[in-house]
Design a protein around this nucleic acid. Structure first.
Lengths: 128, 128
DNA sequence: CTTGACCTTCCAGTTACTGGAAGCATTATG
DNA sequence: CATAATGCTTCCAGTAACTGGAAGGTCAAG
């Protein structure tokens, strides 16, 4: 399979797939002309990576998860640990964004949004 | 005021303050020895920037907001527009993270987390 | 045989800093 | 007063995960 075809199949841009090879996540074969030739196993790994990235795992987490996936003697505890830590970080991020949202909602609703200069949003930002 | 003092007062790292000067958000005076000398107005702007960044505004948004803040003839509608758009993006991000959270919670709770290899998290990532 | 689609590599840019090196300036200590 | 410890300066590189674009080789169709 050429990169265009696997890109279609996995939904990952060709650029991203090349990048994943650069950083050692995959190692597709090469044809005589230098073109990458992806096997089913590569497609499988790329799908795995795409899904993991969709769930927000970092590239380094993906690397770890992929290694665990390929290690038949892994302990599920190791996988769970990675996922739990990631979940915790997502929850932290959500809390942080929700706090921003609340403040912004207040400010936005308090702002007239007309052609006068008075603005509670700016007043809030400028308050000491 | 030297950079160390204003850093303390605003809570912004000196590195960040220098960076803000680099990108033209502030323009502190200089003493004869080359040291930056911050006036009250600089402190004020930095506090404004710190608060805006806390609310998640991008640097470019901050630049816009600062310009509006200093423009006595601004229309509050312009400010509100920036804030509303930012709020929308935050809400998008929250929704995306909440979706990740839900999936991850399911997967984590389904995983035994022991020393056996079976792992629903990996199974999910690997599913086509 | 040429055109267009597809592939290659390499370089630069993105966001908002952060760490570190090399080297002055100032201040505190013995 | 010499020296040592801060504090300040600039500049360079790195971070995360791509993305865009240039320059150029390859392949299938007409």
């Amino acid at each position: 399979m050429n990169i265009g075809e696997i890109s279609e199949r996995t939904g990952l841009p060709a650029k991203t797939i090349r990048y994943y090879e650069d950083i050692g996540l995959i190692s597709p074969m090469r044809d005589a002309n230098g073109y990458r030739n992806f096997a089913e196993n590569d497609a499988h790994k790329l799908a795995f990576l795409g899904r993991a990235r969709t769930l927000g795992f970092s590239i380094e987490d993906c690397r770890t998860l992929l290694a665990l996936y390929e290690d038949q003697s892994r302990a599920s505890a190791d996988v769970k640990h990675v996922a739990t830590e990631h979940l915790r970080q997502i929850e932290d991020k959500i809390a942080q964004l929700e706090s921003m949202r609340q403040t912004l909602r207040h400010l936005v609703s308090a702002c007239a949004g007309d052609n006068r200069p008075d603005c509670p949003i700016l007043s809030d930002l400028a308050k000491s």
